[in-house]
Write a protein that binds this DNA or RNA. Structure first.
Length: 148
DNA sequence: GCCAACGTTGGC
DNA sequence: GCCAACGTTGGC
């Protein structure tokens, strides 16, 4: 069981797009970086949980959790260079966990996402980091309309 | 196999 | 829109 963070530019594919997809499931493909490819091919397993992060967005934030429902398989079986996995929307956060909120959380100090120059679009997340982000995401704020 | 040039990512 | 960081490309 591993935890991951997947980046997506919402203008290309957003959390809402994932929720709208049939069975809330989509193939995560188009990854063209070898390190990310290796994670998809070798390490991402069915049942792994994914922090879904909106990059190049306002706000920059983890907006929900998805579950891996199919492990790595080639985009083009005849070629076998690039790999994809399938993920399914599992939980939309009550509150998006913004970049600023993550930077402010001591538990997340070592997070790959927060490192300068970190551009990897598939990143490993430690169990402790995953729990900390999920806890922040589940908090309801007055602004978000919770707590009635 | 080195490395400069170039392209892309992505936060700010 | 800027630009730092990083990956890739291609000449040599």
């Amino acid at each position: 069981m591993h935890y991951w963070l997947f980046k997506s530019e919402p203008s290309a594919f957003s959390w809402a797009d994932l929720e709208r997809a049939p069975r809330g499931t989509t193939a995560w493909n188009g990854i063209r970086n070898y390190q990310a490819r290796n994670y998809l091919r070798d390490d991402v397993a069915v049942g792994d949980l994914v922090l879904f992060y909106h990059s190049n967005a306002d706000p920059l934030a983890v907006v929900g959790i998805a579950e891996v429902v199919r492990a790595g398989y080639p985009e083009d079986p005849a070629d076998g260079t690039w790999y994809q996995v399938d993920i399914r929307a599992q939980e939309a956060f009550a509150t998006p966990v913004t970049m600023a909120a993550m930077r402010a959380a001591p538990a997340l100090a070592g997070m790959v996402l927060l490192k300068k120059g970190s551009r990897l679009s598939i990143q490993p997340v430690t169990p402790a980091e995953f729990r900390a982000v999920r806890a922040l995401g589940r908090k309801r704020t007055r602004a978000a309309g919770g707590g009635v």
